[in-house]
Every structure is written in C-alpha cells, then in structure tokens.
Amino acid sequence: MPSITDPNLSDRFTSAMEEIHNKHLKAYADIIDTTAELSHNHREFLKSALEACLKKCKDDEKLFETIQEYKRDLEQKKKALKETRDTLSEMMSEVQEKEMQKEDIIQKIQNLKEQQMKREEFIESQNRANKDRLRNLQKARLVFQNHLGLEIRTIMDKTQLVKGEKLQFVFRSISLSDQDSPYVITMGIKEDGSYQIVSSDPVLECLPLLESRLQETNNLPAFLANVRKEFISKARP
C-alpha cells in the first residue's frame, strides 16, 4: 500500500478524480445527448402526431361535410320520390276515374243501343199495327163509301190538342129531309198507335164511350157503323 507520504499520491488521486469526473461528464454528456435526442424525437413525434391529427380533423370535416351533403341529397331524393309517388297516385286515380267513366260511357252506349232496338221494335210494331189499321180503313172506306155514301178526307189539324195528319169521315144520307147534309167525325192516331177522336159535328154525347170501345176492340168499321147509327138517331128523333 502506498504511503500517505508518497509525493505522487496526490497526483494519482487528482488524476483518478479527474478520470472519474471525465467519466461522469461523459456519462452526463451522453445522458444530455440522449435526452436531447429523445426530446427532439419527442418533438418530431408530437409534430407528426399534430399534423396527423390536423389532417385527420380536416379529413373528418370533409367526411362530415360529405355525409351532410349525402343526407341533403338523400332528403331531396326522398322528397322527389314522394312527389313522384303522389303524382303517380294522382295519375292512377285519374286513370281509374277515366276507366270508370269509360265503363259508364260503354254502359250508356249499350243502354242507348238497347233503347234504340226497343224503339225500332216498337216502331216496327206500330208500322204493322198502322198497316192493319190502314187495311181496316180501306175496308171501311169501301163498305161505307159504296153502300152508305161515306166520304173520307185527309186534313191537317194544327190545334193545340192534336197536331198532324187527320182523317175526316163525312156521312151523308143521314137526314131524310136532306140526303146531302154532312155529318162529320174527325179522328187521328196517337204516337202509341191508338185511335183518337178529335171532334164530331154535330156533337155526340156518347162519343167518349164509342171511342173507349174502339180502343178496346180496334174495330174501326164497327165504330163507324155505331157512329152512323148515333148520327141517324140524332137526325131522326
């Protein structure tokens, strides 16, 4: 062991202390360098993280704006779709209404056709009936004109009661004192084909009864014969 009185001891101690001090300084410098590097790296990390966060925020804002735009676009599309559905519903209602109107028109046309057919059948029936009446008139004309001096005239009656073509049956050889004195009955045919007595000259009180019988029997010769009898009864009391 060196002696404390060794003159080199102090130098060696100082050298050892300086060496230790240098080591400490070097270690401290290493620590400072490491700390500085770590601090720099931390700052760079924070800067990078901040930039990433800012970029993320901007991206999120853009994404949010895009989402909001999509939402607005979706709302507009929903509104347009609803309007389209409403319009389509109105159009369908109009189509259904027109279909109903079409069916109603078709039904009315069918009813008109049926009415027209019935009217034609009625007219044909009336024509046949009028032909029968015309034959009866012809027969009555021959019988009364040839044997009883009956004259048949066609006249136009414009009275308010009856309008149209009428027939006048002029009887003669009724009055014994005046064989040429005319006794007249005027009649026509209604729309339903029945006979209608318009007037008689002179007036016969029983004429409504005779007309009623004519409507029931449709026998014109018998009616004219009864009218002649009534004229004779009135002219020859």
Rank of each mutant, 00 (worst) to 15 (best):
A29T: 09
E83F: 03
D30P: 06
K47G: 02
L134Q: 11
Y28K: 14
P182V: 01
N111T: 15
I232F: 01
R141D: 12
E230P: 06
I232G: 06
Q138K: 13
L74G: 14
H24W: 09
F122K: 15
A36F: 13
L81F: 04
K139N: 10
A140L: 04
S89Q: 03
E114V: 05
Q107N: 13
E90F: 03
Y28P: 07
Q179V: 02
L204N: 01
V162D: 13
L210Y: 08
K26R: 13
F144R: 00
K71L: 04
I20L: 10
R153H: 13
E65N: 13
E151W: 01
A140C: 12
Q68E: 14
S175D: 15
G193S: 02
D11K: 09
D33H: 09
K190A: 11
E124R: 15
R213D: 07
L210E: 04
K234A: 10
A235N: 00
T34L: 07
S93C: 07
Q76C: 04
N130I: 06
Q68D: 14
Q179R: 08
N41V: 00
N22A: 11
D104Q: 14
D132W: 00
N218F: 03
K108I: 06
L137C: 09
L25M: 11
E230K: 01
R172I: 01
L137H: 05
M17D: 07
I20R: 09
Q96L: 06
K62A: 15
D132F: 03
R153I: 08
Q116L: 15
K26Q: 13
L150Y: 03
R213F: 06
N136A: 15
R12V: 04
I174D: 02
F122N: 15
R153C: 11
Q110L: 10
S177P: 01
N219T: 05
L134P: 00
N22D: 04
Q126E: 08
S3M: 03
I106L: 15
D73Y: 12
A52H: 09
E37I: 02
T154V: 10
T35H: 12
Y28S: 14
D73G: 10
L54H: 10
S233R: 11
I105K: 14
R72V: 10
Q68I: 06
A29I: 01
L9W: 00
P237K: 03
T35L: 08
D192P: 09
M156G: 09
K23W: 00
N130G: 05
K166L: 04
Q96W: 06
E216M: 08
R135E: 05
K23I: 00
L214T: 02
K190N: 12
E124P: 11
K118N: 04
L63P: 03
T66A: 12
T5Q: 00
F223L: 03
N8S: 10
E99K: 15
